[in-house]
Structure formats: C-alpha cells, structure tokens
Design a protein around this nucleic acid. Structure first.
Lengths: 231, 231
DNA sequence: CGCGGCTTTGATGTTCATCAAGTAAAGTGG
DNA sequence: CCACTTTACTTGATGAACATCAAAGCCGCG
C-alpha cells in the first residue's frame, strides 16, 4: 500500500527559519520540489537499521524513537526525537547504511529530501553548511549527554528523569499520555519492564504521581526533581 | 611556562589526505599560517570542560581522553581519541563552551586552528564542508556506538572489550602498555576500581592475560573475543 | 472466544558497589 | 638521599541494587 503523501509548501514550515533560511530563493524552490512529506501511523517503521541511506529525513510533527538491537538481542532505545529534529542526520554523512531503526511512537509527519540534493546544497551554500553542522552537533551532543546522565543514575532516578523529560520537554504539562509501553520505557532507560512497573507502583503509593493506564499526572514535582538530580 | 611549540609544514601531515585535501593551494597555505602545534606531556590538560571554544584541535600524535564529571561527582571517561581524531569537533559548532575536558594520556602533539578560520573554510569550500561533516559523523557515531556496546555488557565483557580495543585498534599488538590506571579503566567502562583489579587478577589466574604492572599481554585471544561478544 | 501481548506482584538469586585494611609505588620537602 | 605523605594497587567480607523467574489478571484483536 502506498503511503499517504503529505503535501505542503515549505514556505509555511517552521523549519525554514531554523536551517533552510540560509538558502537562496532558487535553492528554496528546488528544495520544495525535491522534498516529500509522508505520514506514519503510531507504531509504523520509518527506517530499518541497515537500510541504504539515500534520503534525509526530518520530523515535522509527531514523535519517533531511534532504536537498535544489542548484542544480547534486546532492543534499546537510543533517543526520542521531537518535531524539528533531523532524525536521520546521524548516519547520512558517514555511512551508506542507517545505524539505527526509527519508528513512530505517535502519528508523525516526516519530510524527506534526496541525499544528493542535500549534499549539493551543502557544497553550494556555505551558510547552509554551517547550519547543518550546528544542528548535527546539537543532535549528537544531546544524545551523548542524555545517555551519560541516565547511566549515572539508579533506577528511581532514571524514571524521575524520563518523566520530567516527557513533562517538561515534550508535553509541557504535568499531565500527559505516555507514548511508550512499560517495556519501551525500560528499553529507553536501561532497566527491565518489571522494575519500571515496580517503581511506578511505588511512586503511585507514595503519591508522587497518579497513574491511569497510559496517562500520568505528576503531583509531587519537587520530589521528582530532587530524585532526578541526586540519582 | 610557555608550551613547547611544534612547528612543521602541513604539507607533510597525514591529515592533508584525510580532510584538508579538498582545500585549494591558497587555502592550504593560509591553513599553514593559521595553525599552531603544541606538545602536551602525559597527564597534562589540553582542554578544561567549560572553556570558551575559539580553537579547533586535532590530535596529530599520541593519545588523549575525553572526560566529564558526573552528577555523582565521579569522573567518567567518554572516549579515547587516537591520532587523526578531531578531538574538539564535538563542541565546536554547537556550543560556545567545551562540553568535555581533554587530557593527554600519552605525550601528544596537538595541532590547532582558529575557529573563525575553520568556519571560513567551511563557508568558502563546499567539498571541505562535506569532509568535515563526514569526519564529525564518524567521531560521534563511534562514541555513541562504543558507549552502547559497553553498556550492554557485564563487567568481564567490558574488560575484554577494552583490552581488545587497546590491542587491536590502538597498539596493533598482543602486548601493550596500558595508558590508563586501574581507576581510569573503571572510569572508562563504568565500574569500580576494585572490580577492575579483581577481574584482572581473575584473568591472570585463568591464564588469559599476563600482567606486569602496566604491561598487558593477551595470551588467550579467543577467550577474550568470545567474552567480548557474549557479554 | 481464545490467543498473544501488556501489565502487575511476589519470591529468589546474581551481580556488583561499598566498606575496610593492608601493601606497594611514587612524589615531596627538608 | 631519606623520612614522610600521598596515590595507586590489591584482596576479602558484606550488603544493596537489580535481573530473572514464575504466575496470574487484563485487554485488544482476529
């Protein structure tokens, strides 16, 4: 089945101001005709690890996870990407194959540009190169820093950290719907499903959060913040 | 005390073929006059976390560690960089301050280029931009992959992995001198000093390695490889 | 309506960090 | 160059944190 194509003019896209602003009028029009927009349903695979890189993707709307199967045959989630993230930046310039799989965890709109065209833009337009370098550094740095922070915490601290992340960085709300299953949360912050659930129950009993299935409401924000800081 | 300056013509540098090859004759001559070479002794700090970024460093010779203090106040080594690595690439295009400290773990020759000049090269020369993007992707990818692999192993597997890394990737020899103390090895692969020592003793007793102070010789390579694979 | 995946709780065992204490090695100052 | 201090290395004992195993309820979906 053909994917639903999403069609719009890049002029209306918030991305323009972020990176593509340095493009000339001509380049911008070319970009417009070289891009494709697609909508992926929750759970749908966008990129499979090992696929040949010939397009460059960015996330316009929705939420996706980057993941990879470890040597122990268990899936690990490396990162959650939000709108405006360049989700395939991590492989594009280095490898001919994607290093990670990418899957939608909410309905997501993905725009893609042919890699050759992107490279041409980089070669032709110096300001644009700098923008891409900055954006790429930022993405990579965030991933490294986040992994670093998570690994420095024990389980309770990791749950606190990730809940604050959802609340503050993604949903900007004390109450939000978890886009991940308990198992996926474990995959994201390196712990077993059982322990995710156990700590959730503990937090519920201690009146730090209210749980209604996938909906989480943070009640004692201070406690979570303290826990996230100290580990 | 002024640092020893190391002076040579970039024409003779192996780097040229790697990245700077795409520069024009003029740009290359400018590079030559904009670069400085310095020699750092073992243990000497090259960059301190938080310092302002205004130079771009690459490692011509030697071995350095990238490290950072975690929330638990313990030092963690993020990466070991080898000759030809662009050791400050990770912060240059994103932040105005370095994210990590960098310290020489062997006598190291570091070449540096003023950041403004590097940015000018990127803007002016499209092919060079692509080289930098590729090199940067590679560095970041390696770090993420290595951290991923290490965290998927238990202690014995981590030691096996890191010894194979020293033996195969750095020293190309079954016998090598460890550039890190036992504590630093722990900082690199996330374990306590005591457990590093314990597992070293265990490997010695099981005739997998011979230890003479800092010198390690791998005897049972197959065992180490198997251990490194399975965890 | 039955099957598989997700969730939950409890019991058990393993892995690893922490604590303690001692030896060896490497700087440091008189 | 020697006494002194500090840092690195080593081993053992203990306990905490966490994974694993087991069992059962729940829900959605074909």
């Amino acid at each position: 089945m053909e994917k639903i194509k999403f069609d719009t003019n890049c002029k209306d896209c918030e991305f323009r101001s972020m990176v593509f602003d340095s493009l000339t009028e001509d380049e911008f029009n070319l970009l417009n005709s070289n891009k494709t927009g697609k909508i992926f349903a929750k759970g749908e695979t966008i990129i499979e690890e090992g696929e040949i890189v010939n397009e460059f993707f960015y996330l316009k709307k929705g939420l996706v996870k980057l993941h990879k199967i470890g040597t122990n045959n268990k899936t690990h989630i490396i990162n959650i990407a939000q709108p405006n993230d360049f989700i395939s930046l991590l492989s594009v310039f280095y490898k001919s194959e994607y290093e990670f799989s990418i899957t939608a965890i909410e309905e997501s709109t993905i725009c893609s540009i042919k890699l050759d065209f992107l490279k041409k833009l980089v070669i032709d337009n110096g300001e644009f190169s700098i923008s891409i370098l900055e954006k790429m550094s930022e993405s990579y740095n965030n991933i490294i820093k986040t992994r670093f922070v998570i690994n420095n915490k024990q389980l309770r601290g990791r749950i606190a950290y990730i809940f604050l992340y959802f609340s503050e960085s993604i949903y900007k709300n004390n109450r939000f719907e978890l886009p991940l299953s308990r198992r996926e949360i474990g995959e994201l912050i390196n712990m077993t499903t059982e322990n995710v659930i156990r700590i959730l129950s503990e937090f519920r009993k201690d009146k730090i959060i209210i749980i209604e299935g996938k909906t989480i409401e943070i009640i004692n924000m201070d406690f979570l913040k303290k826990l996230s800081r100290t580990g």
